[in-house]
Nucleic acid binder design. Sequence first.
DNA 1: AACACGGGGAG
DNA 2: CTCCCAGTGTT
Length: 353
Amino acid sequence: MINKSLQNIDITRFQRNLVNWYKINQRDLPWRMNQDPYRVWVSEIMLQQTKVDTVIPYFHRFMEKFPTLEDLAAADEQEVLKAWEGLGYYSRARNLQNAVREVVAEYGGEVPSDPKDLGALKGVGPYTKGAILSIAFNQAEPAVDGNVMRVFSRVLRIEEDITLQRTKKLFEIYVKEMIDKDDPSSFNQAVMELGALICTPKAPACLFCPVQEQCSAFAEGIQEELPIKKKAKKQKTLPYIVPLIKNTSDQYLIEKRQDQGLLANLWQFPMVPKEEVDNLGNWFYNEYGISIELDRKVGNLKHVFSHIIWELDIYEASTTVERLLGNDIRFVSKEEMSAYPFPVSHQKMMDYL
DNA sequence: AACACGGGGAG
DNA sequence: CTCCCAGTGTT
């Protein structure tokens, strides 16, 4: 036995309590309609670091637009990003399409059920691999996410820092011991559902918990102290000036961001880094090859990412230039803009157009 | 091991 | 405000 706490747990009883509770209390979610591996896959990618309620409308739209793996593989990347617009972590969308294309090319369009093959796909890490294997293929593989670590840190009273990689591996070992070999799909989903509905980060509803009697943390009254998690470090603030540049045809200048890093391949209004630029007109002419006039400040906006903060001063601006060379920078009307994927921060600026 | 990578909602 | 969410890829 790996953990002292595991010795004190009747695993069969734990499984039964948990899975029975899940079968009665599970939410009716669109990706639970069937076990189609493609649907499960899309849902699991969308759910990474993202709440269920946020994902639901995106999932419906995405499945309507790309009903099959082949549809997604054949789509234009910009279309996929447009469908992902506002959901965040956009590399998820690009990796998913990359992986789906690989499945079409290498596996005849069938999602591989072999753990090695599945885990080798872009964007399919240890969690997603385990989730697809258990939910779509009913294999007894662990799928350890934040919920699972919270639930088991309390049930087994594990006080390791869950931000560490080795701690996550520890949980995978525990889940392998605990998982219901007869119904791994329900078991894994049950743990996550419990984490979302009962065993919440703050003020867990222990009185309604189906495994309360087997929870070490509850027995000690320390459920609110677990899990242990090191605090993230503070974001750095980056100030920008964002000119909304209109030409004489009522079109606005937009550009495509670079193909890697933050918000890769999304579109935006030009951003001028405030601290590196003293003369905006000169800087802009050097960078973009056009002269612009800064007319007036129309607002400011703060946008918080997980690792940085943008402080954006928004200006109305104008130019006499009508056309531009290059595929990644262009003048478009307000109406045409809706076809391009924009980050949320820049969608908000469209109110000022 | 540490960091980059979005956005929203709860308390 | 702070925390956290069905994490993964890169360095």
